[in-house]
């Protein structure tokens, strides 16, 4: 599919989340959405109109959102607790830790407009810490879908999961990355581009940027592998090791702080397995970020086809040394 054609069919993952959930919930009245005055930003207004008995509004009260979701789940409800990722994973972190994960009530935590989706609104609205904090909490699967297909599959999988899961969505239209018939499994990364010179291991809305870098590098005769590491936890360690061993250089990419996210998870796997290759974590630095659109912000920190291609060239030079 050409780039232009791909963008025509592209929807925001958030839209696909709400459509998929509505379709599931029409067939199962135990499926509930809990929102904290966030149905609009969660694209859940159609859900609320179609199934008013299956949406619970708690007002702007994220701690309450997660606690109530846990109580509903304890009574057999299939609960999607939906709130902006920035608030959901900071304001209610203790509820996530204790009421959901430690108590093992299978709430589906949905961080909407995550990463820097809210771009110019500033740091209060960015969630660049969520993967780090949730990785350190036992009993929390973390899934960050890259495109519409991954999103729909992740929502369906989450509805069936007997333990807590965190889903992270952005709101920019995402072009398709996978062929029809691709099989999605939580915990198993997906190959987006074949290649053996260098590997990009990316997650969420950065995967398409890595694919763009791959296409730029191909013109220079460099074959880059791109993996969509949609499940950040549990990590597909086998794919990480294989990428490093077969490609000999690894760039990780995430719309998240460089501290504690996908990159450090991959680094730990590699070092503890005795695999040492040129390696770079591309994400947001440990400082107050610039503000602007999501794409401008990501590009500023090197998360763009050009920026990632440049990082790859640097690593390839080290690899050749």
């Amino acid at each position: 599919m050409s780039g232009a054609a791909a963008m025509e069919t592209a929807k925001a993952n958030l839209d696909v989340f709400s459509e998929t959930l509505l379709a599931l919930a029409r067939k199962n009245r135990n499926i509930l959405v809990v929102t904290s005055d966030s149905r609009g930003s969660g694209k859940l207004v159609p859900f609320a109109q179609a199934l008013p008995g299956q949406i619970v509004e708690v007002g702007i009260a994220e701690q309450n959102l997660v606690g109530i979701a846990a109580g509903l789940a304890s009574a057999g409800k299939i609960v999607f607790a939906v709130s902006p990722g920035s608030f959901l994973t900071a304001r209610s972190l203790e509820q996530i830790k204790n009421d959901v994960c430690y108590s093992d009530h299978p709430v589906k935590l949905v961080g909407i407009s995550s990463g820097v989706s809210y771009g110019a609104l500033g740091s209060t609205h960015h969630s660049l810490h969520d993967l780090a904090v949730l990785r350190a909490i036992p009993n929390c699967t973390i899934v960050v879908p890259a495109d519409n297909f991954e999103t729909a599959e992740a929502v369906k999988a989450a509805a069936e999961m007997p333990h807590p899961v965190f889903l992270r969505f952005g709101k920019r239209p995402m072009p398709p990355l996978h062929r029809p018939g691709t099989k999605f499994t939580v915990g198993k990364s997906l190959l987006v581009r074949r290649g053996n010179d260098i590997a990009f291991i990316a997650t969420g809305e950065t995967v398409v940027q890595a694919a763009g870098a791959c296409d730029l590098l191909a013109r220079e005769g460099i074959s880059a592998r791109v993996l969509s590491m949609h499940t950040v936890k549990p990590l597909d360690e086998e794919a990480v090791l294989q990428a490093a061993q077969e490609c000999g250089a690894v760039v990780t990419v995430e719309e998240h702080s460089c501290a504690g996210g996908l990159g450090e998870a991959c680094a730990a796997v590699l070092l503890q397995s005795g695999v040492s290759v040129p390696f770079r974590i591309v994400g947001f630095p440990d400082e107050e970020t610039v503000s602007g659109s999501q794409l401008d912000m990501m590009a500023y920190y090197g998360i763009s086809p050009e920026g990632l291609a440049e990082t790859a060239r640097t690593l390839l030079n080290r690899k050749r040394l």
Binding site: N64, G67, G71, G76, D99
Partner: peptide
């Protein structure tokens, strides 16, 4: 934490 959890269970 208990009251939110209890409210959720009661609502269900």
């Amino acid at each position: 934490h208990g009251l939110a959890f209890g409210a959720g269970a009661a609502l269900a």
